[in-house]
Design a protein around this nucleic acid. Structure first.
Lengths: 207, 207, 207, 207
DNA sequence: CAATAATCGAGACGGTACGTCACGTCTTCTT
DNA sequence: AAGAAGACGTGACGTACCGTCTCGATTATTG
């Protein structure tokens, strides 16, 4: 978790006793996260100042600092709280269709305005390990759990070798997408996704 | 070129006549680039301020600004000027050995102190297209040219399909490395490289 | 009074009927005033924040604000509640001995830790007329009443002119002390007090 | 001196060699001091924020902090740089007329808008010894030097005892003025000044 | 004895000014 | 002309208090 939890702050005496004092304003919390995302999408990382977030959210600067130790933590939390629902894996009968379908949705997001947010997160993550960790835990892992299921179905159907290294396979599928997304040396098209799936999955087929 | 050339600055009167006045100090130029690289490697992007570079290089701030329009340009130039050796592709008789050999050298660099510089470049590149372009032109493309050769030899030897999409293949090989390098969700080991090569190359073999 | 009285707050329904609700905590009141004085004496005016007073007194900030409208009022009240003993005027037979005796006690206080409080009050009073008024009413005037008596005895004894301007005389005696106390251009010694008394009182003698 | 001198900052290599770098902007210096005085006179000490001074002077906040360590030093310097010329001592033939003349000018200043500045200085001086020291050195002492002359003329003329303690005498004359100015328990009128002079000087007359 | 009411401690809230830092520009003298 | 030095206006940083507010808990009077 990026935010300092009330439990952390109060020592967490075990019982469910509410800590004394005015409770945290949920309204402020949401407004801050929304503003952070909006400004990140609008103007990129460099225009995202804590001051602008606070102003945009009609919130005191101190309220931001009370709950997030730095800009990176705020961004990570904002991103995590907005994790997209559109990245579900279908179950259409073959590993190829299931994976390529989801990967097409992913590049759609990467190429949209949300993509700016993702690249800002990954950039910030190179300086701050907490940010990249938040990205992994909140974004990457949940989807990977679903991907495992898709692959397992493929193994059961005999489409993939039963001893396939699932993490290696998934990195081989998604790595090229992330690479093109970040280095921008080539296009991220649906056709690229299809041929990528063919290439990698054919290498993981039953002998 | 990232640096403003003297010709640009002086209007380039055509002849090879040196412009009048004190010539640019090569010593200062080198000191600045070195300092930029050092600070990048030491403390990452956030500690690389123009002020610190100038101080570390015993140079006036204005001298930095005279030759590089912004921090991104400086970083890109500094990185470009530090062309990495050791990333040659061998010619050992098979695509698999040639590629895995080179990829092992790459992850060695990524895991060293130089890796900090690379990740800082890629992070800075998300905000500044000139930086990422410099990375592509100075680092990625030269190596890819050599990689094409390696792959062509493999095609000639019948190890790879003759109609293989070389860019797709290379992204499939390097993408997973970049992904693990930047997201750090799994290790970058020689074994990983080997299995990655096996998986991807087996998908590109002659039918 | 500096404090908002309960009567004010409750509309004062006439009878001596106690208003309902939890009565004001005398313990909190005292703790707040004590803390204010302590912090004033320790570190002067600038370290006296309402926040620090509340923390030091183990009291909610709102409890301070409930009873004192601002910092100046609190300081004034705290000072007033600390009625200084030891400043009695003796009756030893001559104006000179009576006055110099008391003035020696005064400079003793000015040179002690209590002096910091007095100078903080006088400093605060330059910004807030209520503070300086409190100083006058609670500290200056009561003593001046006693001083009048001392002077009247002197007149009766023929030591002073019968038409002497007592306020002028007292200001001439105490003014130099306050001046040296605040501007610190010279020492506040018992000898200074003695010579001051001699000088001023000799000017007020019967012709 | 309140300002950090260039000599201090550069180590003062002895020669009159100008230190390198852009020289300090005299225009900024003057604008800052003027603004400080203006704001002090307008709204008193509490409305004098460094931020408002900088804004009013069209100057960066950092420029203020570069040359003055804190608000008190700034005020002291501003006050010192504006020391009034109107407090000359006349030479009219008697100590009484010379002194009362000058003291009348003093209370005129104390009762004017400049008085706010003086009381703000004295208040600030209670917290910061540098401020009160600046007041002494820049304001009090120069006038006292002139006052000594006036008194010496009086001694020469036989109006004052030849062994009179001049500092004691001057404190007895000015102390009551400062006291009434700061505590405001009584009026500062020309008549008060006259009677004060009569009282004190008569105590210092030749026996 | 319950209901009502005001106070208490705690602590979060929207603000404002703090003093620092780096930005990119400028003005000086020196090379 | 370029260099080092360093001051300039600008603006965000993260902190400290301001004075206000909402909590649950406590302690009185009133019905």
């Amino acid at each position: 978790m990026r935010q300092k939890s009330p439990a952390q702050r109060n020592g967490d005496r075990g019982g469910n006793r509410r800590s004394p004092g005015r409770p945290r304003s949920e309204q402020a919390r949401v407004a801050i996260l929304r503003s952070a995302l909006k400004l990140l999408g609008d103007n990129g990382f460099s225009d995202l100042t804590i001051e602008s977030v606070a102003a945009h959210a009609n919130v005191g600067k101190a309220t931001v600092y009370r709950w997030w130790p730095n800009k990176a933590a705020l961004i990570a939390d904002a991103f995590a709280s907005s994790t997209t629902r559109k990245l579900r894996f279908p179950d259409a009968g073959s590993v190829y269709t299931d994976m390529s379908q989801q990967m097409r949705q992913l590049i759609k997001i990467f190429r949209s305005r949300r993509g700016r947010i993702v690249s800002a997160i990954l950039a910030a993550g190179q300086r701050d390990r907490d940010v990249i960790a938040a990205f992994r835990e909140r974004f990457l892992k949940p989807r990977r759990q679903e991907a495992y299921e898709t692959l397992r179905r493929g193994i059961a159907r005999g489409e993939l070798r039963s001893d396939v290294d699932m993490d290696l396979l998934l990195d081989s599928l998604y790595g090229p997408i992330y690479m093109r997304f970040l280095i921008r040396h080539d296009e991220l098209t649906p056709e690229f996704v299809d041929r990528l799936c063919q290439l990698v999955l054919s290498g993981a087929r039953e002998a």
